[in-house]
Simulated scan of single mutants.
Amino acid sequence: MSGLADLAFWRHLRGTRTLATPPDPVAPPGDGPLVLICGPSDAMPGLAGALRRLRPGLRLGALGPVAVDRGDPAVPQVLPEPPPDAALSRRLLAALDPAALVLTDGAVPAALVFACDDAGVPVTLVAGQIPRAPATQRGLWHDSRARSPVTRIARVLVPDRATRAEALRLGLAPARVDITGPLSPVIDPPPVNRPEAEALRPLMHARPVWLAAALPLAEADAVLDAHAALLTARHRALLLIAPADPAEAEAIASTAEARGLSVARRERDEEPGPGVQVMVAGDAAELGLWYRLAPVTFMGGTLAGGGAARHPFEPAGLGSAIIHGPATGEHGAEWTALDRARAARKVANAAALRPAVEDLTAPDQAAALAHAAWTVATDGAAVIRRIAEAVLSDLPEARG
């Protein structure tokens, strides 16, 4: 496309919005096959990274809002939205010549799906759920087979058998519906200074160690009560505290000292020697270090309300057994997944924290819980790999 035809095309695509310089659909540079991704998704960064790792040289482009990869290059936005009609969709495919289209979060741009089917471009839909209510089954999902774009999709990937059964009930061919497992975000573990970890590890050897991560001052008394109770049974126990707010570090340390506990302060370069009972870090910046050193982690912010400040998959992915309260905040779905898998210990209140800490500082108890948590936290990566492999199976073989 060029000249006045291009201008008219892209002005029409943007609807009534007028731009001094209308956007052109510029394919990402390179010689590899192009995969277009449409539909906002928390898992899109992980999917993009998996596609790139499994197929070096692959080009990716987004139709719509761009999700930024953690630690990877962003997926360039080809267009701010998919084409709204058949003619524009056909012209987009002619301009970009994609090898495949991936739809996420139930996004099904009908005109583009029909155009891809006509052009022989395979389309994969990653569907977290299939609508069940009669009102939502009309339109895209419950139209006649001749008109429904969903039945023109090459592959639908669903999380479980129940969702697959619902997809089949709505008329999708069994050969086109595959189960990958539930899709969840992949959380990169916090970084760690490995020499520092190796230097601290001998100081904690053979000691019962637990961590209060992102601890607010409002929960300090509950955590210190639990540690005092633990010390009566395991006198060499060590509590690591990473305050949620660096400004509260000194107040937490002073509260511990007022209880007669021996405290080391990280910001003063003090070490957790044999006589130290509580180690207070300056803030949560070194959580990657503490997660790796503590077999048990209590997630701060889950007892006093306001929700947990940190994602539960952080300690789960690093092999630390997790204790949490009822206030799960914005990460409720992840906490539910951990609790259902018996991969975390939920406590109802501060009084219940004490026996939970004592139980889990027994090595066998902590190891079983930590392994289950690691499985839940890393399942998302395995699912994303399966999705990426399915998408790449539609592409031509890479040349030697």
Rank of each mutant, 00 (worst) to 15 (best):
S2M: 12
D6W: 15
L7T: 14
W10F: 12
T18N: 02
P29D: 10
G32K: 15
D42Q: 15
G49L: 10
L51E: 04
G57D: 08
L60H: 06
G61V: 05
G64L: 09
A67K: 02
D72M: 12
A74W: 12
L79W: 04
P82R: 10
L88P: 01
P98R: 07
A100G: 06
A100S: 10
L101P: 00
D105Q: 13
A107R: 04
A110E: 07
D117S: 15
A119W: 11
A119C: 10
V121G: 06
L125N: 01
Q137K: 15
Q137G: 12
R138A: 09
R138P: 01
L140I: 10
W141K: 04
H142S: 14
V150N: 09
P159K: 11
R169G: 15
A173N: 11
D178A: 13
T180R: 15
G181L: 05
L183S: 07
V186W: 00
V192H: 02
R194A: 10
R194F: 12
P195D: 09
A197V: 06
E198F: 01
L200C: 02
H205T: 13
A206V: 05
V209M: 02
A213G: 11
L217Q: 04
L217Y: 03
A220C: 07
D221A: 07
V223G: 01
L224I: 12
A226Q: 03
A226L: 04
H227L: 04
A233S: 13
R234G: 00
R236P: 03
R236C: 06
A237Y: 03
A237R: 02
I241F: 03
P243G: 08
A244F: 05
A247G: 14
E248D: 13
E250K: 15
E250S: 15
A251E: 14
T255A: 15
A256W: 07
R259G: 03
R266K: 09
R266D: 11
G273F: 06
P274D: 12
Q277L: 06
Q277A: 10
Q277H: 10
A281P: 05
G282H: 12
D283K: 07
E286G: 07
L289W: 00
W290R: 11
R292S: 03
G300L: 01
A304H: 09
A309R: 12
R310H: 14
R310A: 12
E314W: 13
A316R: 01
A321Q: 04
I323C: 03
H324F: 06
H324W: 05
G325C: 08
T328D: 10
T328A: 11
H331V: 08
G332H: 08
W335C: 05
T336A: 14
T336C: 09
A337P: 02
L338Q: 01
A341G: 00
A343E: 03
A344Q: 02
A344C: 05
A348G: 14
N349D: 15
A351T: 11
R354C: 10
P355V: 05
T361A: 00
D364S: 13
A367H: 08
L369T: 08
A372K: 06
A373S: 10
T375K: 14
A377G: 04
T378F: 02
E389C: 04
E389Q: 12
A390H: 13
A390K: 11
D394L: 12
E397S: 13
